[in-house]
Computed example of a mutant assay.
Amino acid sequence: MEVIFVGKSWKFKKALQEEILKKVTFNKTVYLDKFDINFKPDDETLIVTDENTYPLVTKILANLTNQNVIIKDDFLIPETAKFSKNSFLIEYYYPINVILLKDEVPEILIITPEYEEINIFNFDKDSAKLLLEPIFNAYKLNPVIFEEAGIVKIYTEILEEKIKKEILKTIPYTVFGNLFAHIVNNLPPKKITFAESCTGGLIASNLTKIPGSSNCFDGSVVTYANRIKHEWLGVEELTLEKYGAVSEQTVKEMLLGAIEISKADYALAVSGIAGPTGGTPTKPVGTVYIGVANNKELKVELLHLKGDRNYIQYQAMMNAIRLFITFSRLYTSL
């Protein structure tokens, strides 16, 4: 974990610094007078702010994750954040916990894994909320609900097994916990491979962070240039010339090539324009095709994504994972 202290005042608050650092296991500390508007996390990150730096840090992180800033319980947070008094938690590749440190250390959510992540597929947020609200009310749960990449994500208190069963009975298209961990733990003995273009290996990287990923993953390819798509995956030159790299036709051939060279049971393919350049009037920045296939059938979707380059790549990855889970029906079963 990286701990970042933002603000000039931390030079004079040694006792509070030490109190924070005693509570976490960290490998790096950074002291910044000002928070970088282009901040991107490289690891789990705890950001410690004061009253002067907290509002700007919050706005930068909300912008990073393409969210609005709202006020809850007199506390400024990104709209989908999990929060408690003077502390909020969001995810952008890695968990990011921002705390506003006054006279005492608030709850550090990044080291408090006492929450449940619920992923709902094939429903929009309002429909899922309507169906699950009676369960949440019956057990006095206070969930945070939002949509990301076509998935309804819910964060709430740790759930007993009987509550999970009620949720699955109500909405069977559900996965509890981290989606990559779910794939690693439930896909074997079947295997998956990836043919990535605009995501540049991001899907494979996130899957292989999970221990045991070798049980469902032998390898994948990053086919960035058209020549590599043709030579490695067998995408026809005529397809690339006629339809372009960012097209349904190209992604279909990427899928077939990935299945052929890997011998995997499933393949995911992604090709798009992550920006900031490369867009055209007919294919603007954020145009992304994602596809999934097995040995019998395939499916391709067209996405129109918003955000900076990194966020478009992140959304493309998560949409591809959504497509795989719905295609394979790899939902939680209890």
Rank of each mutant, 00 (worst) to 15 (best):
Thr250Pro: 13
Leu131Asn: 05
Thr282Tyr: 04
Ile20Gly: 00
Asp308Phe: 14
Val300Ser: 01
Pro276Val: 07
Tyr331Asn: 08
Glu51Tyr: 02
Ile210Trp: 04
Asp74Thr: 12
Met254Ser: 05
Thr112Gly: 06
Asn142Glu: 09
Ile154Ala: 01
Asn185His: 03
Lys263Gln: 15
Asp308Gly: 11
Leu330Tyr: 09
Lys190Pro: 06
Ala316Thr: 15
Ala62His: 03
Ala320Tyr: 12
Ala15Val: 06
His182Cys: 11
Pro284Gly: 10
Ile20Tyr: 00
Cys216Pro: 12
Glu18Lys: 10
Ile111Val: 11
Glu51Lys: 01
Lys28Phe: 04
Phe194Trp: 03
Ile312Glu: 14
Glu117Leu: 01
Lys72Ser: 12
Tyr289Gly: 07
Pro95Phe: 00
Tyr243Gln: 10
Asp36Trp: 01
Leu32Asn: 07
Asn66Lys: 13
Asp74Leu: 10
Val152Leu: 02
Gly200Ser: 09
Phe123Leu: 12
Lys162Ser: 15
Lys242Ala: 03
Tyr173Met: 09
Thr156Asp: 08
Lys34Ile: 13
Leu56Glu: 13
Ile60Thr: 10
Leu132His: 00
Gly177Gln: 04
Ser328Ala: 15
Ser127Leu: 07
Ser214Ile: 01
Lys306Tyr: 09
Ile96Gln: 03
Phe324Thr: 14
Leu268Asp: 11
Leu240His: 05
Ile259Leu: 15
Thr199Phe: 08
Gly275Lys: 01
Glu297Phe: 13
Ser247Val: 06
Lys252Leu: 11
Ser87Thr: 14
Asn122Cys: 11
Asp43Cys: 04
Leu233Val: 02
Thr58Gln: 02
Thr250Tyr: 04
Asn206Arg: 13
Leu168His: 03
Ile60Gln: 03
Ile158Thr: 13
Ser247Phe: 08
Asn137Val: 03
Ile158His: 02
Ile96Pro: 01
Ser84Leu: 04
Tyr266Asp: 12
Thr239Gly: 01
Glu248His: 15
Leu61Ile: 04
Asn185Glu: 07
Lys299Met: 12
Glu18Tyr: 07
Gly286Ile: 01
Ala320Leu: 15
Lys296Arg: 14
Asn86Trp: 08
Ala316Asn: 09
Tyr31Arg: 06
Lys59Leu: 13
